[in-house]
C-alpha cells in the first residue's frame, strides 16, 4: 500500500461504476457458461448411470481426482493445448461442477422410492414419461441443491481465472488491488463476489420453491 492510501475509498467505487459493471458482466458470463455446460454434461452422465449403474464408480473416481487438483494448477495445466483462452478456463470450471452435479443428480434419482416407480409403471408410464413426470420432479430439490453449490463454488473459482486473462472480479482483486497496491479495488472485488454468490444462492432457492409447488402445499 502506498503511503497514506486509505483502505477503502468510496469515491473511487462511485467513479468506476461502469468498469465494475463490466467486470461483473464478465464474471457472470464465465460462470454461466461453466454451470450450463456442466449441467448438460452431468445430466447426460446421470441418465447414463440410471441406465448402466456400473459406470457410476469410475465416473466418481475420475471426477474425484479432477476435484482434488488445485484450481490454480487446473487453470494453467491446459494452456499448452488450448492456450490462454476462455476454453482453458471453462475446462477447469466445468470439471469442478461435474463432481457436485453428477453426484446430486444420481443421488436424487436413486432416492425415488421403489413403490413410486412401481406405481408409475402400473399406470402405464413409459420409461421416458416416468423419468420426466415422476423421477425428475421428485429428485428436483436435490438436483437444485447441487446446482446451488456448483454455482456458488464456480463464482468463487472464476476470480482466479483472471490469472489467465479472463478478467472478471478477480481482475479487481489481483490486477488492480494487489499488483497496483490499491486495497479499495480488492475489497470491492471480494465484497461483490460475496454479494453475487449470496444473491445467486437465494435466487436458486426461490427457483426450487417455484419448481416444487407440492412441497409448499405439503407445508400448508
Amino acid at each position: 500500500m502506498t503511503e497514506g492510501e486509505p483502505l477503502f475509498r468510496l469515491d473511487w467505487v462511485l467513479q468506476h461504476l461502469d468498469m465494475l459493471w463490466q467486470r461483473i458482466g464478465e464474471h457472470i458470463l464465465v460462470t454461466v457458461i461453466a454451470v450450463a455446460a456442466g449441467f448438460v454434461i452431468s445430466f447426460g452422465l446421470a441418465l447414463a448411470v440410471r441406465r448402466y449403474p456400473f459406470i457410476y464408480g469410475p465416473i466418481l473416481a475420475i471426477s474425484g481426482i479432477l476435484y482434488a487438483i488445485p484450481s490454480i494448477a487446473l487453470f494453467v495445466l491446459f494452456i499448452p493445448i488450448t492456450g490462454l483462452s476462455l476454453l482453458t478456463a471453462e475446462i477447469a470450471l466445468v470439471s469442478y461442477t461435474l463432481v457436485i452435479l453428477v453426484r446430486n443428480m444420481v443421488t436424487g434419482l436413486r432416492g425415488v422410492p421403489p413403490e413410486v416407480i412401481e406405481a408409475a409403471r402400473g399406470m402405464g408410464y413409459t420409461d421416458r414419461q416416468r423419468l420426466w413426470r415422476v423421477e425428475l420432479p421428485i429428485a428436483m430439490p436435490i438436483i437444485v441443491a447441487g446446482l446451488r453449490i456448483a454455482t456458488v463454488t464456480t463464482i468463487g473459482l472464476v476470480t482466479i481465472a483472471t490469472l489467465i486473462g479472463m478478467g472478471g472480479l478477480g481482475y479487481l482483486i489481483v490486477n488492480i488491488g494487489v499488483q497496483r497496491r490499491f486495497p479499495t479495488a480488492t475489497i470491492t472485488g471480494v465484497v461483490i463476489v460475496v454479494l453475487l454468490s449470496t444473491a445467486v444462492d437465494l435466487g436458486l432457492q426461490l427457483l426450487q420453491r417455484r419448481l416444487t409447488p407440492w412441497a409448499r402445499a405439503h407445508e400448508a
Binding site: V152, L157, T186
Partner: peptide
C-alpha cells in the same frame, strides 16, 4: 464458503 481463496490473500 462465500469468500474465495484469492479474497483472503487479497485482503
Amino acid at each position: 464458503r462465500a469468500v474465495p481463496s484469492l479474497g483472503w490473500l487479497g485482503i
